[in-house]
Computed example of a mutant assay.
Amino acid sequence: MEQGNTATKGKRSSMGESPGIAGFLKNNKNTLIQYAGLALVIVVFAILTGGDLLSGFNLRTIIKQLAVLFTISVGMVFIFSHGGMDISVGAVMALSSMTAIYTLNAGAPLAVGILAAVAVSVICYLLNVLIAIQFGLMSVISSLSIMFIARGLVTYNVSTTTEKLGVMDAEQLKLLGRNIPFLLIFLTIVGLIGIVLFHYTKIGKHNRAVGDNPLAAMQSGVQVKKAKITGYALAGVLVGFASILSLARSTVISENTGSGMEMDVIVALILGGLSLNGGSKAKMSSAIVGSITYILLNNGLVMVGVATEVVSLVKGIVFLLVVFLLLKRPSSEVMPR
């Protein structure tokens, strides 16, 4: 029996499992960094701001700022989990917002404006993935083409309009942009649906399987192309909703609307512990915790009086630190496909 136990321990050791606390820390490194980062940001800035970070007024501001990033991040997990990469989100969000403006200004009800924005976003993301699949391109290349097209359309329309391009009747958007109970309910629903779809349905399981090994997933019966298309479609739906939330706050768009959102999303997901390689270790909590951490970090830095240009520098340093802690990988692994 002792020899058997020794052999079992040796086998576990050879498989890379570590016993005790060290093993727990190693096996749950991403999760621990994920929540430790959030706790650290809350504690540090709560102290530096004298508790103002968690004041009622500032929490309402944080929720409004969080709504767009949170919604998009939940959708992006489905893309990143299968090893994809999207950098078109800011431009697509701007194009969807512009579509909603034209639809609402034509006299359509708010529901129709929302559906129009979501439809345009889904079309953009389906084009994105279909181009990548059809021509065998890296997802980042196809998303770059969509980004240029969407940004070009927005820039052209904004530049050829004599007045600001915005919603004429902004009252109908107030509920979406300023009502805190509504935003909390909406974010809770988005988060719960995201968790269920990603962790408890074939949609999430297949996308994670593709992220681990596309060939093995296909041999196991997973329709790789279908899994990717479904992931992009879900991301498109949420980017469409996010465009309405963004429009509800500003009621107007410019050629710079959504600029930099793609990097905000990537940084938020990395802060949440999501590996850019995707796979079975991908978790929806990365979007939830990461987006909250990112908004709190950004808000805290502004509250303590850090200059805007320095805020970007600090966020860049934090991003590199988290990447160093989370993304050390064997040379055999590949970058996002």
Rank of each mutant, 00 (worst) to 15 (best):
A209M: 05
A209H: 09
V210G: 03
V210S: 10
N213L: 03
P214N: 12
P214G: 04
P214F: 10
M218Y: 14
M218T: 13
S220G: 04
G221Q: 03
G221S: 07
G221F: 01
V222T: 13
V222D: 00
Q223G: 05
V224H: 11
K226G: 00
K228I: 13
K228Q: 15
I229C: 02
T230S: 11
G231R: 13
G231S: 03
Y232V: 07
A233P: 07
A233N: 05
A235L: 12
A235C: 15
G236M: 08
L238H: 12
L238K: 01
V239L: 03
G240R: 09
F241Y: 11
A242R: 01
S243P: 01
S243N: 09
I244N: 01
I244C: 06
L245E: 00
L245D: 01
S246D: 12
L247N: 01
A248W: 00
A248F: 02
R249M: 12
T251W: 00
V252M: 14
V252T: 15
V252C: 08
I253K: 04
I253Q: 05
I253M: 04
I253P: 04
N256H: 14
T257Q: 01
G258T: 01
G260V: 12
G260H: 08
G260N: 10
E262G: 11
E262N: 11
D264L: 04
V265W: 07
V267G: 03
L269T: 11
L271G: 04
L271V: 10
G273S: 10
L274G: 08
S275N: 13
G278W: 00
G278Y: 00
G278V: 08
G279D: 08
S280C: 03
M284N: 08
S285G: 07
A287T: 06
A287E: 05
I288Q: 02
G290T: 09
I292K: 07
I292P: 04
I292T: 08
T293A: 12
T293I: 06
I295R: 06
I295W: 09
L296W: 02
L296S: 10
L296T: 01
L297G: 00
N299G: 10
G300P: 06
L301Y: 05
V302S: 15
M303Y: 10
V304D: 03
V304R: 06
V304T: 14
G305N: 05
V306W: 05
A307C: 09
T308M: 13
V311M: 08
